[in-house]
Design a protein around this nucleic acid. Sequence first.
DNA 1: TTGCATGCAAAGTTTTTGCATTAAG
DNA 2: CTTAATGCAAAAACTTTGCATGCAA
Lengths: 146, 146
Amino acid sequence: MRLTANRIASILRRKGYRLTPQRYAILKAIAASEEHLTPDDLLEKARVATPQIGRITIYRTLDILGQLGLVCRVHAPDGCRGYMMTRPTGHHHHLVCTGCGRTLDFSDCPLEELEKRLEQDTGFITTGHLLEVYGTCADCRAAAGS
Amino acid sequence: MRLTANRIASILRRKGYRLTPQRYAILKAIAASEEHLTPDDLLEKARVATPQIGRITIYRTLDILGQLGLVCRVHAPDGCRGYMMTRPTGHHHHLVCTGCGRTLDFSDCPLEELEKRLEQDTGFITTGHLLEVYGTCADCRAAAGS
DNA sequence: TTGCATGCAAAGTTTTTGCATTAAG
DNA sequence: CTTAATGCAAAAACTTTGCATGCAA
């Protein structure tokens, strides 16, 4: 399960951040979405609940949430501007539908061996990785194959 | 081995593109670099050989090279604007030094099992993936651990 | 000679900065 | 009350478009 808006709200307060209506609107928008959202998408969605919210607040809030590890960027083939709520577990990767942007996440990945081999071959010390798997979700296939 | 500037030049001609001094300067800059380069980095480097080159030419050339699969974008933790020459083999991934940006590539990755499992679990049909491994190269470690 | 490629300038996007005002706690 | 957070406006950063000129083939 991904984090809920309320759960994140309490995390923010615990960290000393204020819970403004703007922030809450952003949290709800990103928590409710199955698709990764750009700052612009978020602005539009957050404005439904809080019409006067400014674009800058979106950026500032994403920045805070990103630093706390509560949201993360989705790297899709058509751009890297989307954000999703993360899972509480930390390490995870995305499965992104290239049709609709729906994004699922998963945490198991078989890359330890590979990283070890790369270290031996290159003299690098590996510190992490980014893995995004692309595909088409069942809904998009149904819509396309009509 | 990555592609050389001359090798790419002949590919371009074969495809019907003209080999202008500007394009050649860009090819040489990107082929000579161990690090991934942003359009701005490329502009600066290409201008050494061809001072009057315009920023737009960088974008247009990267676009062509990208469509032909000759360069590709590097997704680093601090941004996704860098480009590297690709290998002739096609499918590949990057090992990126987070210190200096040096980028190596490799083509083996053990993700078939994972993709199969994801398909079963989610109803997606997977079509590809992005994998970037991050780490620190020996030079950067030596410089930092002084 | 032909028409693809370039470069300028200008516009379109996306993101950041400065600062006075507002409101959460 | 305090001071973090907001929003406007303006700037900065990044990318694309339109068009006349230039040059590779």
